[in-house]
């Protein structure tokens, strides 16, 4: 079972890295989401698979035969919720970027860091990207 999980982690990390290295913004976000799933699987496997001792057994109670450690499951749940929120934010951000910039190519997004035209000096700031100039 652990090898199946390891294979799943391997496949999702590979797919996630491949997508994240793409130039397409939506693919980058999807890649990060897939990488997040891989991280969740690793976290899940940290609690050992199958029968294992739970983190805490109340005094006087006995352990069920096939109990699994519940703590990593709680951790994975937390991580899924956080990851979901971040992916939602990222998708809205990408939609807004595509609408405003008219491109989904990461290499074309040079608004924060314009390409230098001079080999020695950085470009002068673009008035449109500066904060509203003081009057």
């Amino acid at each position: 079972m652990i090898w199946v999980l390891a294979l799943a982690v391997w496949v999702s990390v590979t797919a996630g890295v491949y997508l994240t290295l793409s130039r397409d913004l939506v693919r980058i976000v999807l890649g990060l989401a897939v990488l997040g799933s891989a991280a969740n699987l690793v976290l899940f496997a940290a609690g050992r698979l199958g029968p294992a001792q739970p983190a805490v057994v109340p005094l006087g109670e006995t352990l069920l035969a096939d109990a699994a450690n519940p703590l990593p499951q709680a951790l994975v749940l937390t991580a899924i919720v956080i990851g979901f929120a971040l992916v939602c934010f990222a998708l809205v951000l990408v939609l807004r970027l595509i609408r405003d910039a008219g491109t989904d190519d990461a290499l074309a997004l040079r608004y924060a860091e314009p390409v230098p035209s001079d080999a020695v000096k950085p470009p002068l700031p673009d008035p449109a990207s500066e904060p509203e100039s003081p009057k």
Binding site: A90, L93, V94, L97, Y111, A112, A128
Partner: peptide, 20 residues
């Protein structure tokens, strides 16, 4: 602003890798 959105995306992508 467009440059802020651009910066947000870069901050997001690289920091998300860090948190993962």
């Amino acid at each position: 602003r467009l440059d802020q959105l651009d910066a947000t995306f870069k901050y997001l992508a690289l920091n998300l890798l860090g948190t993962l």
